[in-house]
Amino acid sequence: MLEYTDKIREIAARLLKEGTVEMVIGFRKGTVPMMNEPCFVTDAGDVDRLIWDGNCGVNLANYLMDRKEKIGIVAKGCDARNIVTHIVENKIDRDQLFIIGVPCTGMIDRRKVAAAVDGEILEVSEDGHNVSVRGQGFEKVLNRQEVLQQNCSLCIHRNPVISDELVAEEVPEQQGVDRYADVRRIEAMDPEEKWNFFDDLLSECIRCYACRNACPLCYCPTCFVDESRPQWVGKSQDPIDVRTFHFLRAYHCAGRCTDCGACERACPVGINMRVFTKKLEKDCLEKFGWEAGLTTDARPPLDTFRPDDPDDFIK
């Protein structure tokens, strides 16, 4: 990852010095293990703050919203797809951006790493194959592939689909990945099992909305859960309202979600709400042959009408 960091700094310094962009959005090293903080740099002298490693799972496309500057943005595969989605949805202009593309080898799941050791983790380092963990009185080396975020281990678009400059050669895309085994497992449940599964899945939810807010797709000026005239959803911990929030949020992401995993990663109580968006992603793929954020030339299936739509009800 060191080469990536050096290259990101070099490009950022050049862009800022030449005035190509006014700010570069990237990551700086976090204050706790396996957490980096999104940051911006406006002065070429400060680019040493920028870093890259397997803890850059926050989706930086989220930070482009409503910005007026010329921006250089560090983007891994999924970030680039969400940038495409922003461009398609007119949230940002392509010309406003200089995309520093990062061919990605997957982001580390800090919960998996924590579960693999006994005791508090004090330091984590990585090379291409291993993640080394050190804590009070223990050291352990883990296989990097085995502690990736689930969405990363299933990712088939690791190389940015859109970029102005890559920080390294493209990485090989993963082949023969079964992306939807978990969704099929839920689809196969009978209604009661499904009900119990969702009930259990959401039982710890505290409605902090970190999942919604970490997502670049959620940019409505007032979210439906916050709307008060009329008020669509109750605000208490009533399970009906908690479910309403989750199901509707997922539907708002249909055909737009890139399975970047930023939502799941943000949750303070470890809920895998990605199963909802993945089901919709699977449906979009199977019914419309659609994957979000691969091209700026087409609009997502749920916001277009095609005269040759196979369904009768829409004609």
């Binding site: 999104p38 940051c39 505290i206 902090c208 970190a210 970490a214 605000k235 208490s236 943000a266 303070p268």
Partner: peptide, 24 residues
Amino acid sequence: FACINCGTCTYLCPTCWCFDIQDE
């Protein structure tokens, strides 16, 4: 800059006390 304005820090905090009143 990085903040996503979620409720994590305030909801997890033992000292945060703010509330909202709703009729349902």
